[in-house]
Nucleic acid binder design. Structure first.
Lengths: 253, 253
DNA sequence: AGGGCAAAGTTGGAGTACCAACCGACCCCG
DNA sequence: CGGGGTCGGTTGGTACTCCAACTTTGCCCT
């Protein structure tokens, strides 16, 4: 019989939180078996659905795992984040390919002044011309199609004085990285906030990056912080045919 | 009434795959509303559980989202992988700190011959002396405590001839990266398999990395592949007090 | 005593049913 | 014509049930 208790929190959360606490406090040490669905229903006075759900959530968090016909057990090595394996072609691979072909095509453009191709891509991607973009970097293939494009907003360093200067990447472009330059200025980068996700490309990106139909895009958003102040924010977009992502989420039951 | 069809695949997967296909093919464009539970049960001839489950899985994948009282809708920006935000102190931050203090302490050791400190840590972490470790790199703090240690198994490059040579990182150590060296040898790196996870450190790691109680470890396992052949496998371990991870999984219903 | 087999227990898939909170559209009344 | 209330549809939480596949345990028979 159904009887809904007028509670704000879902019932299954009670079970989840209690079990989680027991695991964290060591009452349920690694390897220990979790009470079965039937036992949980009796112990907590909840339905089987709630018990099952609680187990599922804990398994999704990586605290426990279930074995068919046997039971649920506490993970010996709790996975604090869900374990993800991504398997992708390296963004840098085209650089290697280009090196082989003696056909290196890497351009770094500094400040708002952009080199021809960099400016074109920036326009196609609707990066406003007036944006405080300090650096635009992109990597293109032999056939001139872009594979990676990145732009960043960062404070100027002493080396950035020459506006519009075009530098090859393997030169001072990379050696004079942000961290190095900031350190030279006495600014200590304390934190980096990074968001990685794949998504379906926007129309402008399909156009700008010459994406084939169905291709996905790897989007990396990164902000360097010095204290609370951001010193750099960069966007990196990599076209989807460069990588294939294999991810295993514990799919909810 | 329950009637189990002798099928290998779960029923809900049929619904998931059909809806996923429709979304991918544009039949259900971004913003479109997904059939409700009741409609799905009728359309696919499945129970409400299967319909609900299918919606949940699609929502977990980030293809759709549900609004209570309204319905499920196709995401305008489908998130193919669960969106993860990790917020961590950069592994390279200590380098900046050291640069400030004029106290750079980065060592690259080549081949099995290791420099004093590198060998000590390698021993403490139980990397066998006979292992084909080409490079051991570690970063230590001012107080000499290690914050990062990495070792890799990779084929020798022409520049690696001098065994036991110690090179500062910001020199040729980084410029002569694996990808570059492989390219010079005509080997093209086609794929990188990377596994990132946090875990509780092992006793040897607690010892070797001087971890405080409760600290976690960021473990990165990376293999570079040329075709099917691995050309490099590296392990990177970062002590846990360097980063704090903020993750948001779409917790299954 | 030891090996094999059956029974009991467990997970995971699936179905049905009900309720609360909520959204939206329609209709009615002022 | 506009505002408010009602009603149907929808999601999400919960309960109960059954079954298939599997593991584990313990008993029985050889």
């Amino acid at each position: 019989m159904y009887r809904h208790v007028a509670s704000s929190d879902p019932v299954y959360l009670r079970v989840v939180e209690d079990l989680r606490r027991q695991i964290r406090d060591g009452l349920l040490p690694p390897g220990a078996s979790i009470p079965s669905r039937a036992q949980l229903t009796r112990k907590y006075g909840v339905g089987e659905t709630a018990a099952r759900h609680a187990l599922r959530v804990l398994a999704a968090e990586g605290l426990i795992y279930g074995r068919v016909g046997s039971g649920h057990y506490v993970r010996d090595r709790p996975v604090l984040t869900p374990l993800h394996r991504w398997r992708h072609h390296d963004h840098h691979a085209p650089m290697a390919a280009d090196l082989q072909n003696q056909n290196r095509r890497i351009t770094c453009t500094w400040r708002v002044e952009r080199a021809e191709a960099g400016r074109a891509i920036g326009q196609r991607l609707r990066v406003p011309e007036s944006a405080p973009v300090v650096r635009t970097r992109y990597v293109i293939r032999d056939d001139n199609s872009p594979v990676q494009i990145a732009w960043s907003y960062e404070p100027m360093g002493p080396g950035d004085a020459a506006e519009g200067q075009i530098l090859p990447t393997e030169g001072s472009g990379d050696r004079q990285g942000l961290v190095t330059r900031m350190a030279a200025q006495g600014i200590k980068i304390t934190e980096i906030v990074e968001t990685v996700r794949t998504r379906i490309p926007e129309p402008t990106e399909i156009d700008a990056l010459d994406l084939v139909a169905g291709a996905h895009v790897l989007h990396v958003e990164r902000t360097h912080l010095a204290g609370d102040r951001p010193v750099e924010t960069s966007d990196i977009i990599v076209s989807g045919d460069l990588f294939s992502l294999v991810y295993s989420i514990p799919v909810p039951t």
